[in-house]
Nucleic acid binder design. Structure first.
Lengths: 242, 242, 242, 242
DNA sequence: AATGAATGAGACTTCATTCAT
DNA sequence: GATGAATGAAGTCTCATTCAT
């Protein structure tokens, strides 16, 4: 099937290459999550993707390249979805909360992805050249992290955020906290649920709720119990405007 | 049965054994931090500790045993220090904040330890039997995590915490958040500093400050700028009484 | 799918693989006999076969696999040759004797093989899954061991065997005896010859002769000396008809 | 406890040494049977006997020495019991049969011992100096194997054995066969029972029965007592003995 | 582009045995 | 005589990667 067709159509050829690439990446992604990145062998990736060593190495010349490609893909996916998630929000706080809620949703829906990121942070981030990471993570919020400063200033201006927040630090601190929490919970998974008696989802949403209290201008000291689940966002927002 | 001579010899032997054990553990601890746990080979541990393979295996029969021993040691150390740190606090909030500040201090002073823990979470926690982890982590706060509930109830009662907090969730959520943040920042280290332009220490303390705002009863919407650094605790507490 | 070129290459590759496999197996077979199975190291197999560890492990992923492969090969060889040996016999006794004589011939001509089998019995048979052994040994006499029953019944009917033999037990008992004797003599080799003053070959043939006396219908109470050698079979057969 | 007492009583001291020796031997004997000789480590022997390496090496300076000691002990035991077993028999055949029956009993009652012997034959016998073995095995039948010749001659004389047996070979052949069978059956154990559908005990006894038929003078061919073909054969062979 | 074979370098562990006390 | 520690020498097996075809 291969040779003759290949010769004929460049398009087909590229489609084929892309398909093969995906097979490898998908197989690796699953294995990395199941067995851990370091503990997954190239042989396992080969078996799972149905390709031979030499073919695989035509696509990725190092194991690290696969890791990197998956990382890149994930960032791109997240970046796109984040934009959509944040899109509708109007006030500064609403935008921030939309971002954080998006992260909570990821923990519910994309556990494997978060787990991969957690491994990546713990094991790879340190080894790889900073610029590479910076370049890439820059795409995460494509206006760059400088936009965060504006967002806080905007939030203070529109009265949704506490006036005593530091525009330079606040969002970095909050986002890092949520990402850190999200990844830890994803790594520990069941373990944390047995230990604490709560689902990791609920724990992360509670963390976000407390952060929100810490951010919003007029912290509503109502007799509100915990408000787990996705609804928390809606309710909290409702409170603020009233 | 144990003659005096024997007793003396026994002690000497025991001391020796303990010394050797430490040599191994210390060497491994450093290597694990420098090169990553999985990427550190037993050969490196041997070289660094100055022992031959076979001698080393007299002390730890598996590489994992070393990892586990370090983990255990670290938990013990932390547990002891935490107790001291929290000891002086009086109100519910003060106790909680003392705990969080202690974690911030750890990031400043014990970066390597936190980095080890981060790796452990991401790579090992999943593989090891839950009970083992639970038993051990139980010693972390030796009153157990159930005490957290009391602490929040106490805080609400003494007026230091928002009345609408859920005693079951709050502290688990907060502590997990701080631990998660702490470990992520430790893993990324310099990278995060270059990326965000702030020291990881400052970021974590800002996170804690925001969490504190989210926890305390009368969130003081004063025109107080960011108050990073250890002093934050003191000042924040001062505010509370005013 | 398989173009002509591929087919050719495939064959070449296959031939090569088979050749390499043989190199390993032949080297191991010799070493196992010289030094004992357990005492032969993979390093020795590598040296003797001229392959590196990693190449060798491409062919056999465990040392046991080599042992098993040799065992399998030997059974196959024996099975084929047994069929030929037994082929010409007509009466029940003649068939049985042909089988036993074949075993005596093996001891003369394939000492190494028998020695391997002896080791296998003593050391491995117990460790390996029964089904695996049964499946394989079933091929030894491919009509299965049930055929033995028929053979004895046939022998009693045609008057060549004692009528008071138990069809269920007789052949199992006899074959096991000869195999057991054969393997013991092979293991002890020179030792037994020095001890008893007879060649192992002669001893085994004498054992078989006595068993034959015990089996045949009209036990000839003659003053017969030992009749070693392959010829015994022929003579016995000739006599019986007269 | 040790030092002072030791100084006092030579007897106690020797008793102690003998007890320790037995502990080691007993522990090893069991392990050798369970795990195989080569696969039993000195560490396991230490654990099972409750002695430390260095103490153990005071008693046996090499692992092989333990194997050898067990082997020696077993031969001695067997030798003693054999004499008792054979003791009562009167005719030549009866003596021989008593010996063979004794071996069948061993298989029923001393499986572990036979299994050890089987391993010994397959793995050790070849490595060890012949003289050592000969010296020792000579004690087995303490009149030595030359006695076998006499026994057969006696049996022929008293009419219990076929007259055409070769006094030089017969008993060696028979005993070797029974020992070989016994050891093979012991090694394979359950495996052979599943394969053939008979207990190893029954198989061995049937083998012995057939050998007996082959040895005894007037083979009781119950319903078929005629000996027509006998003469024909007898004549040719008769030459040799006369 | 794909394949099958090859492999260097090294991973972790084990074990019988010896010493110093 | 007993002990605990030490250890040399091997042992089996793994894995990312490269070549020749």
């Amino acid at each position: 099937m291969a040779t003759r067709t290949k010769a004929k159509l460049g398009t087909t050829y590229h489609q084929h290459r892309e398909r093969q690439r995906r097979r490898i990446l998908d197989a690796a992604r699953e294995l990395f999550d199941e067995r851990g990145i370091d503990r997954t062998t190239m042989a396992e990736v080969m078996a799972a993707s149905g390709l031979r060593a030499s073919t695989l190495y035509e696509y990725f010349s190092k194991k690290d390249d696969i890791v990197w490609a998956i990382f890149t893909d994930m960032l791109e996916e997240s970046s796109a979805r984040t934009k959509i998630a944040v899109g509708g929000a109007t006030t500064g706080l609403a935008k921030i909360m939309a971002l954080l809620e998006f992260m909570a949703d990821q923990l519910s829906n994309d556990l494997a992805k978060i787990r991969f990121m957690a491994q990546f942070d713990a094991m790879y981030a340190r080894d790889w050249p900073v610029e590479r990471l910076l370049t890439l993570e820059g795409q995460f919020s494509d206006s760059g992290f400088e936009a965060f400063r504006e967002l806080v200033i905007e939030g203070i201006a529109d009265g949704s955020l506490r006036p005593d927040l530091d525009p330079d630090l606040t969002l970095h601190a909050v986002i890092n906290a949520v990402v850190g929490t999200q990844r830890r919970l994803a790594s520990l998974g069941t373990k944390v649920e047995q230990e604490y008696g709560h689902s990791i989802d609920r724990l992360l949403r509670e963390t976000i709720r407390i952060l929100e209290f810490g951010l919003r201008a007029n912290a509503p000291t109502t007799s509100n119990g915990s408000t787990p689940g996705v609804k928390a966002r809606g309710r909290a927002k409702g409170k603020r405007t009233s």
